[in-house]
């Protein structure tokens, strides 16, 4: 393979692999903006990936699978909200529980449903061909020749950015993460705002999982997310809870991940274990550089209790 063809393929793969990461991370950011630190993203992604894959396989409709994944994610988010916001349990512990449980449940159900077989989705999503996608060298296929969901996903990211910035709901979500007391004082329900944020966050994580198993891979296997949910949590912080920054970070991360396989394809002898490490090192370095002066949502991870009229620190 010549270098140009390799780069073309890699760019295309890297951009597509940034989609699940960006969606999950934007979801996490919505939750964190509302003061909810959900470490269950990985588990919710797995639940979305499994149900999405299963529904796609049964209905042979990729779109239906994505919807199913989103729905499962939303229900998981609702569950997280019920326990974290309405009951008021510790968010970190609850998130770890959801990750452990989601990973166990999807692995268990996958073995129960498919045994040791490894089914593949019959068709992958259609890609536009011809025209500009092929006329432009190198970046053409990556930017213009992706499956339709690729474009929908970035539109969703943009929509969340607009929602957080320019709508009443967005303002409420941001306010409830900064000062629940103030929100309560002006007569807006802290609980329902946070619940809504939890559901949106869960739905986006579920969609992220479904897009991973349906659009990017075409199969499911136990723990298929390989820690994407946790990287998403780090990216949400790195991108300072702003969807467009997160999207940019996710693309950089996707490119870093693709770099490893790229170097191998063009016969540079670097061990895959070494290159696999790079994105995480990059994330830590980026955190280090942006760490100073980062302003975390003030009420992040804290349960709000009306009766005492103040925020309770865990």
């Amino acid at each position: 393979m010549n270098t140009e063809a390799v780069i073309t393929v890699l760019l295309s793969v890297a951009l597509l692999s940034a989609v699940p990461l960006a969606l999950a991370s934007v979801g996490e950011a919505v939750g964190e903006r509302a003061g909810l630190l959900n470490l269950g993203t990985e588990g919710i992604m797995l639940l979305g990936a499994f149900t999405g894959f299963w529904v796609s396989l049964e209905s042979s409709s990729l779109g239906l699978g994505l919807l199913a994944g989103t729905f499962t994610g939303g229900v998981s988010g609702l569950l997280f909200g019920l326990i974290a916001v309405i009951v008021g349990a510790d968010q970190v512990l609850l998130g770890l529980g959801i990750t452990l449980g989601g990973s166990g449940l999807t692995s268990f159900l996958f073995r129960e449903t498919f045994g040791s077989s490894q089914p593949l989705l019959p068709g992958s999503m259609a890609r536009p061909t011809g025209g500009l996608a092929e006329a432009l060298p190198i970046v053409g296929p990556a930017l213009l020749g992706q499956p339709w969901f690729f474009y929908l996903a970035w539109m969703i990211v943009a929509a969340v950015e607009l929602m957080l910035r320019g709508t009443t709901l967005g303002l409420r979500i941001r306010a409830v993460g900064e000062s629940p007391v103030a929100v309560d004082t002006v007569g807006i329900s802290v609980v329902s705002t946070r619940m809504l944020a939890a559901i949106i966050a869960g739905a986006l994580s579920g969609l992220a999982g479904a897009s991973l198993s349906i659009v990017e891979l075409g199969f499911f296997q136990p723990n298929v997310t390989l820690g994407t949910g946790f990287i998403a949590i780090a990216l949400a912080m790195l991108g300072r809870w702003s969807p467009w920054r997160i999207a940019a970070m996710a693309i950089v991360f996707g490119l870093l991940r693709g770099l490893g396989s790229g170097l191998q394809l063009i016969d540079v002898s670097v061990q895959s274990e070494f290159t696999r490490m790079l994105p995480y090192v990059g994330a830590v370095v980026a955190l280090l550089l942006s760490g100073r002066g980062m302003r975390v949502p003030s009420a992040l991870g804290q349960t709000w209790v009306r009766r005492r009229g103040s925020v309770r620190v865990r």
Binding site: G97, L100, G101, G102, S103, G104, L105, S107
Partner: peptide, 10 residues
């Protein structure tokens, strides 16, 4: 047992 551990944590 992953499910058991997860629900236990919750």
């Amino acid at each position: 047992f992953g499910v058991i551990e997860g629900t236990l944590l919750v």
